[in-house]
Design a protein around this nucleic acid. Structure first.
Lengths: 147, 147
DNA sequence: GCTGTCGTAACGATAATCGTTACGACCGAC
DNA sequence: GTCGGTCGTAACGATTATCGTTACGACAGC
């Protein structure tokens, strides 16, 4: 799978905003988050825009603008983030329709669809068990200066 | 994720070979499987080559050559296939190292690694519950001429 | 107005997958 | 021992997704 880092970066951004707000700040800018994640502010704005559409963050414009959480980190799960930033299904079907004249070609897609649905349901359940509060706590619990 | 169809095509090929052998044939050719999957024989040979390295199928060369199962479909699971054809992890870390001077940038990767490990472990467990025998049975159970 | 930030379009770089062509390696049949 | 069919694999282009970057208009507080 061509693994993509969208979920990771989105979680990073949410954890950063959450911690920043707990330090007393109103909003966080995409530039600050981009510095922490070592990427470009536009990448952050694009991702946070998707999180905003999902109701996880809010943005203010104008001078002193930036991003803030729309909900507490404890009420937000990786599933919320996953659904906001990952469009497609986990596994894809054939790119072209299999031979419908063949017994396997005819039945394989309904069969795999059912199997994949069950697996994705389990994945979603696991993602839903992890709150962004836990992500932040695990992040802060990382040892300093590991040898 | 770009979602990829490698797992789907590999399962299709295994189910096809399994059914073909139950009909009394010794080996299946990549051309036959490619016709059923509506793709190119080289795509099938590439995928089956990876399954051969994993010990799931065997191949014979020369005249009358082709592919056969190395194990019964009932002893083969989607996890075996997944590990054979999917290289990377489900979710990726940042493409560049986050800012180690930032608390979040420093701790986010160990945190997400731990979380992702748990999730992938659950995914593997789910994949291991589905045998290729079940894939074939579900495929054969698909209704004909659905309205 | 000025300034700083968002919002978003546009483009190129990169990488993975897939389809295709090509061709040597192999081996049973004859 | 040649022939024919299939594997094994390299090579290349097409397609797609993500990411990084530049650019610029929209917005709002000062």
């Amino acid at each position: 799978m061509s693994a993509n880092s969208r979920l990771t970066i989105a979680a990073h951004a949410l954890a950063w905003i959450g911690l920043y707000q707990r330090q007393g700040h109103e909003v966080a800018t995409s530039e600050q988050i981009a510095t922490s994640a070592n990427t470009n502010p536009v990448v952050i704005r694009r991702l946070l825009g998707e999180l905003r559409r999902a109701g996880l963050v809010e943005s203010r414009r104008g001078v002193g603008a930036g991003w803030s959480l729309a909900r507490e980190l404890g009420t937000m799960t990786l599933l919320d983030v996953y659904e906001a930033v990952e469009p497609g299904p986990l596994f894809a079907m054939h790119r072209t329709t299999p031979d419908q004249g063949c017994v396997v070609g005819h039945g394989i897609q309904p069969a795999m669809r059912g199997i994949y649905q069950d697996i994705e349901e389990t994945l979603r359940h696991e993602l839903a068990r992890v709150t962004l509060e836990k992500v932040l706590q695990d992040t802060l619990a990382a040892p300093h200066q590991p040898l």
